[in-house]
Design a protein around this nucleic acid. Sequence first.
RNA 1: GGCGGCGUAGCCAAGUGGGAAGGCGACGGUCUGCAAAACCGUUAUUCCCCGGUUCAAAUCCGGGCGCCGCCUCCA
Length: 490
Amino acid sequence: MLRIYNTLSGKKEVFKPLRAKKVGMYACGVTVYDFCHIGHARSTVVFDVIFRYLRFLGYEVTYVRNITDVDDKIIKKADAEGVTWEEIAHRYIGEFSIDMEALGLEKPTHEPKATDHIGEMIRMVEGLMKKGYAYQADGDVFFSVEKIKGYGKLSKRSPEQMEAGARVEIDEKKRNPLDFALWKASKPGEPSWDSPWGKGRPGWHIECSVMSQEYLGETLDIHGGGKDLIFPHHENEIAQSEGATGKPFARFWIHNGFVNINREKMSKSLGNILTIREIFNRYHPEIIRLFLLSHHYRSPVDFSDRNLVEAKMGMDRFYSTRKRMDELEGKELAPQEGKENLEEGVLKAIEEVKAFPGRFQEAMDDDFNTALALGHFHDLARNLNALMGGEGLRHGIPLNFLASAGDYFRRFGDILGLFQCAPKHYFEEQRRRELSRIQIDEHEINRMIRERQEARRQRDWKRADEIRESLASMDIAVEDGPNGTTWRIK
RNA sequence: GGCGGCGUAGCCAAGUGGGAAGGCGACGGUCUGCAAAACCGUUAUUCCCCGGUUCAAAUCCGGGCGCCGCCUCCA
């Protein structure tokens, strides 16, 4: 039974969609004016995992993630570069798609662009005006916050409190400082569409109200986004949508926590924005997913080199286990002895492996506790390693048992978007990244390995160890296994 | 000023009334020519501090200290 923390109620609630077996989910996407940063990665990964898990539970999920392609920031960027705003939007939609694909994100069911729904936005604004929720001032249209009941119910603050705090910019045209723009008159050269109020463009909030309704109907099962969107964006969406339809807008509100960099908030002013692409240069995308999913989605995560190295170690361990399982395939094993002959430790490992799917689902059912779920994956790896070690094999662990258990990585890992590479490819890709970082020629390494092999054959341990030492000083670790010598970057 | 969150081992991190998960690191062992990897074992008598409720508290309540987010565009 899935339970989800609902920002609206401030509690975990049992999840039940409006229509049995069908879920409508909307997550706020990005504004396309720059490369994606690690914060975007977190948000998109979190909702990607939620999407996948809901489908795993058997729901037919319609997942909508919008693209904001008309906005002040896009216009500003276009001005700065002396190009059209369309060009900026088009460019960063492309870059966004590249990053999302690299992160292994599933494509949402719909990925609508704001500019494809201007007509519907105008109609919703007209509707709001007719109902008295909105008013026109010159070419602008504002939503009148005091007209709607329950404004502030999501962010848990009353309009009075907000005015008391009053850091709101004073706009002469607004009747109330808290009112927000539904439609903005555009200046010459800015993106503009014809409307009953003259040439203009939509406000930011209205696009999500319109696009969610367009693809998912009047009431959504799940609406998500980063914590920072609770106010004002999501609060305003509720006001618009509920004003327009008179129906509840979203039943479950899910908000992900922020990513800090070295314990500081990531911001342009601090100059510590970390793009996804910069991180890809050094780490396999699954490592980034592993790092992000090692924390509960609502907690803040601290991004630092040290923490990422830790995630890489964890991922290496998982793939090492999977590599061992691959190597075992097709090997002849001693026939299985009676169960009573298995040692206690082996039996315990088998029991724990069998318990994995249940434990994984239990963790995910509890508000998508991916950190706990990954803990269970670590247990799985440890137990499988133990079974593949001397003890297990000597006792004739049936290969088909190992194979089906190894399949857990693929099947349940898929829900987290992890463990989907062939181990060989994972290590090769990561090695490629690291080699380019430490600037060492692979052929040189292989030459030294061969030389050491020769020394070992001649039992010249001193020479072999010297070579190993000098490789170590280049951050190369040498490993002698039953199938020969391999190396990796430390 | 208003609203919200957090404080669990050297580090990262689950756990929200009755056993302190898991990972990294460290140390000891098995394996190995020696190592590495892998495995086994050890590594928090106790969860920021003080008080309270309870048969029982990391978990609930009150107070204190410290850190952070939102209230303005923001994933």
